Computed example of a mutant assay.
Amino acid sequence: MQNLIRTAVLVLAASLIAGCSYFGVYKRDLVQGNLITQDMVSQLHTGMSRAQVVQVMGTPLMEAPFSSDQWDYVFYLDKAYGGTVEKRVTLTFANDQVVDIQKSGDMDSDVELDQDSGPGPAVEGAGEGAAVPQVGPTGL
């Protein structure tokens, strides 16, 4: 009887372990850094002030640690069931104006980010074309 129980437990454990590898693991897209679009990059030019750059690109992801004359905007997307997308824009300043713009990565392709698949439950009834429920005091 004990051998039958041991065999059943062993078969059950083996089937559970094999089942995990059979179905695969759920993956999500991993997005890191500043979103960089072709439209944003096309608006950059030498002679822009820091405030103008912030209006176009937002705050930089990184500033050079020993000098505030270099701003780096980095975007990295690791697609769950695909490749990766990497973009980088490095701006160099002199007298608070852009003097050099260096780009790397595929700036021509824009990345579509799915906002509805974020963590947590979706808003009920907020599908495409649905009105977002209003929160707050109602008229009396």
Rank of each mutant, 00 (worst) to 15 (best):
A130G: 11
L61I: 00
Q134I: 11
A18V: 13
Q52R: 04
Q38A: 13
V99P: 00
Q38S: 08
S21L: 15
Q134P: 00
D29L: 04
D69R: 11
D114I: 07
Y26P: 10
G118F: 11
L91D: 05
P121E: 12
G125M: 07
H45Y: 08
K79G: 01
L113W: 05
A64C: 01
V54C: 01
G120W: 14
N34R: 07
S109Y: 06
S109F: 09
R28Q: 15
P121V: 10
V85K: 03
Q97A: 11
Y81G: 02
P65M: 08
S109E: 14
V25T: 13
V123S: 05
M57F: 10
F66D: 15
A130M: 14
N95H: 14
Q134V: 14
V123R: 05
P121H: 12
G125Y: 12
G82V: 05
A18Y: 15
T90I: 13
V111W: 08
A122H: 11
E112C: 00
D116F: 08
G47E: 09
V123M: 15
Q70N: 03
L77H: 09
L30Q: 09
V53T: 08
Q97W: 01
A122P: 00
V89N: 04
G105Q: 03
V99K: 07
L113H: 03
G33P: 01
G125L: 11
D69S: 10
A94K: 13
S104Y: 01
Q97M: 10
A131T: 15
W71M: 00
M40Q: 15
D39M: 06
M48P: 03
R28Y: 15
G120P: 07
E63T: 11
S68F: 00
V123Q: 11
L61A: 03
A51M: 09
G83H: 01
S42T: 11
D39L: 09
T92D: 04
L35M: 13
T37H: 09
Q115A: 15
V85G: 01
M48R: 05
G24W: 08
F23C: 11
G120E: 10
W71V: 02
G83E: 08
A18P: 01
G118R: 13
A80N: 06
V123E: 12
G58V: 06
Q38T: 06
G19C: 09
M57W: 03
L91H: 01
V53G: 07
I101A: 07
G127W: 02
V85D: 10
G47H: 08
G82E: 14
E86M: 12
A94W: 06
S49Y: 01
Q115P: 09
C20V: 07
Y76L: 10
M40S: 04
D106N: 15
V98S: 03
G129C: 06
T84Q: 12
Y22F: 15
F66S: 04
A18N: 07
I101K: 01
T90C: 02
D78Q: 13
S42E: 12
V54P: 04
D39Y: 05
M107R: 02
P121I: 08
Y26V: 13
V74L: 13
E124L: 13
P60Q: 00
K27V: 10
F75M: 15
A130L: 06
Q43A: 08
N95V: 08
Q55Y: 01
D39P: 04
D106P: 06
D116N: 13
W71D: 02
